[in-house]
Structure formats: structure tokens, C-alpha cells
Design a protein around this nucleic acid. Sequence first.
DNA 1: CCTTGACCTTCCACAAGCTGGAAGCCCCAT
DNA 2: ATGGGGCTTCCAGCTTGTGGAAGGTCAAGG
Lengths: 127, 127
Amino acid sequence: MNISEVGKRAGLPPKTIRFYEEIGLILPRRDTNGYRIFSESDLHRLAFLRRARALGFSVQECRQLLALYNDETRASADVKALAREHMARIDKQLEELAQMRSTLADLIESCAGDNRPDCPILRDLAQ
Amino acid sequence: MNISEVGKRAGLPPKTIRFYEEIGLILPRRDTNGYRIFSESDLHRLAFLRRARALGFSVQECRQLLALYNDETRASADVKALAREHMARIDKQLEELAQMRSTLADLIESCAGDNRPDCPILRDLAQ
DNA sequence: CCTTGACCTTCCACAAGCTGGAAGCCCCAT
DNA sequence: ATGGGGCTTCCAGCTTGTGGAAGGTCAAGG
């Protein structure tokens, strides 16, 4: 199967698939004309990647997840540890964003939002 | 004042300050030897930038905020609108992260995390 | 057989927001 | 004069792709 078809099936644009090959996440065969040929196994890897990325795993983590996926002798503890680290990072981001949101909401509420120049938001930023 | 001192006072590393100059957020004077000289006004701009960035505003938004800050005839409505757009983006990010977090938490809970290879996390990713 | 359009290929540049490092100048103290 | 620190510029890299240009390939229609 060609790149655009595997792209449709996996839900990834061809550009992204080429990029994933470039960084070694997949290694499709090549036809005599130089075209990439994707096997069912390549398709599965790509779909796996799409879902892992959608969960916010970094490309490096995806690499590790794929390695674990292909390792029949893996320990599920290793996968769980990876997922836990990732979730810890997400929790940290959530906290930071919630903190920003809270401050912003306060500032926005305190601003008249009319045509006068006086603005608590700018005053706060300037301190 | 020199770059490292203004950096300490504004809470920004010299590298970042040079970068901000490069992209036109500040324009410090230069000494005859080529060294940057920062005025109190430069310091205020830098501190403003640090706080705006800490609230998650993009550099482009910071540019607009600084312009509004320096415009005596601004309407606070414009500042408020900027802040509202930004908060909307933050809310979107929060939603996405919360969704990821929820899925991840489910997967993590369902995984034994022992030395056996069977793993619901990988199964879900592979679908 | 030739053309046309839709593929495919590679390579380069850009996005955000810095950060690190190298090479070289400058200033002050010893 | 020598050493250490600070300053300068420029280049490269991080992450995760995206957009575009130049050019090869393939299948269908005239």
C-alpha cells in the first residue's frame, strides 16, 4: 500500500509518515521506483503511534512504547511506569494551566472593558 | 545597567533578553564598546514581558500587550479581549489535557504492572 | 504515442521560544 | 602583563511536524 492510502487508514498525513520514517519510528520497504510500500504491520505501527501521540506521549516515549509492544518478554510494569511518568507530567501541566487560568479570570473580571485606558490587567503585568 | 544586571532584576536570563531584542520586543541603547545599556524603562518592559509570558501569553500577544501598555489612548476593552482570547485557548488546552488524563488514569488502573507481558495499555494503543 | 493529472520522491525552510556553545573583544584587579 | 569574568556575535539544536519547490512515475483518455 502507498503512503497516502496508509495515511488514510492510519489517520495520519503523508508528511507525518515521512517524518516518522526519518526519525526511525517506522521503516517501510521500498518499491523499485523508490515508492514506499507499507505492510499491514507498518499500518498497525502507524495507528499505534497516532493513538499514543493523541494521548500526549512524546515521540521518545512512543519509541519506547513501540519497543515494549514488540517485545514479547516485556513486563507490564515497564509500560505502566512510562504511563505514570507521562501522567505526572500532564498533572503538572494541568496545575500550571489552572493557575494561569485562575489569575487570568481574576484579571479579566476586574477589567471594565470599556473605551477608557485604565486597565487592571496591564497594571498587574506592569506591577 | 548591563545585561546580566537587568536580567537579575527582571528575572530573565541574558540569552532570553538578547532574543527579545532580536525579535524587536526591546531596543536597548548601546555603549561605545558595543555593550547593551538598559534603562529603567527597559527594565520595566522586561519585567512586564516576564509576567505576561508566565501567564502563558504568546510572544505575539506580549507584543500587542506592550503596545497597549505604551498607548495612553488605549481602550481597556482591547486588553480585555486579548486576555479573553488567551483564556479561551487555555480552557481548550485544559480540556484536552483533562481528557488525556482521564484516559490515561483508566488505562493505568487497569494494568497489573507486574512482570507479565500482558498489558491493557498496549492493547488499547494497538486497538 | 502523447498528454494530463494525480501520485510519489527529496530537500529546504519555517513555526515557538528559547538554550548551549564557540570564537573573540573588553574591563578590572593583581 | 596576565587572568578571570562579562560582553559581543553567530551558528546549531531542541520538538513535531507543515508548506512548498523541483522533479520522477503511473494510469487513463484521446
